[in-house]
C-alpha cells in the first residue's frame, strides 16, 4: 500500500520539510499510542491474573500458614535458610562456592541450613 506521505515525495523520493515533519511527529505519537495501549493491556492482564491467584476468601487462609512458618525459623535465618552459628556473609560465601563447584546457577540450588561444625 502506498501511503499519503510516500505519495507526497517527489519523483526521486525526496520529502519537503513540512511533510517530513508531519511524518516524524506522527511516527513518534504512534509509537507512544501503541505503547500506552500495550501498557494498558498488560496492566489489565496483570490485574486479572492477580485477582484469580488470590481470591478475597482465600487470602486470610493463606496468611495463616505463613505465620506458622515464620515461627519455625532458626534464631539466625535468611528467608527459608536456617543459619546455626554462621553469619549471613559467611553463608552467602559458602553458597557461592558450592554453586561454583557444582557448576550450577545459585538460584537452581536449595539450601536448607548451614551449621558451623566445631
Amino acid at each position: 500500500m502506498i501511503t499519503p506521505i510516500a505519495l507526497a515525495a517527489d519523483m526521486q523520493g525526496h520529502l519537503d520539510l513540512g511533510t517530513a515533519s508531519v511524518a516524524a511527529l506522527m511516527g513518534y505519537l504512534f509509537v507512544f499510542l501503541g505503547i500506552v495501549l500495550l501498557m494498558a493491556v498488560i496492566v489489565i492482564t496483570g490485574k486479572i491474573m492477580s485477582s484469580k491467584k488470590v481470591s478475597p476468601a482465600e487470602a486470610p487462609k493463606a496468611a495463616e500458614p505463613q505465620k506458622a512458618v515464620e515461627k519455625k525459623k532458626a534464631p539466625g535465618s535468611a528467608g527459608e535458610l536456617k543459619l546455626y552459628d554462621t553469619d549471613p556473609k559467611t553463608a552467602a560465601m559458602l553458597m557461592a562456592i558450592v554453586a561454583d563447584k557444582m557448576g550450577k546457577p545459585i538460584n537452581e540450588l536449595h539450601f536448607k541450613s548451614i551449621k558451623e561444625v566445631k
Binding site: 506521505i5 510516500a6 525526496h14 520529502l15 516524524a24 511516527g27
Partner: peptide
Amino acid sequence: FLGATLLGFTGPE
C-alpha cells in the same frame, strides 16, 4: 529521520 531528509536523503533512506 528529519535530519536525513534535510540532508537530501529520500524518505525510505
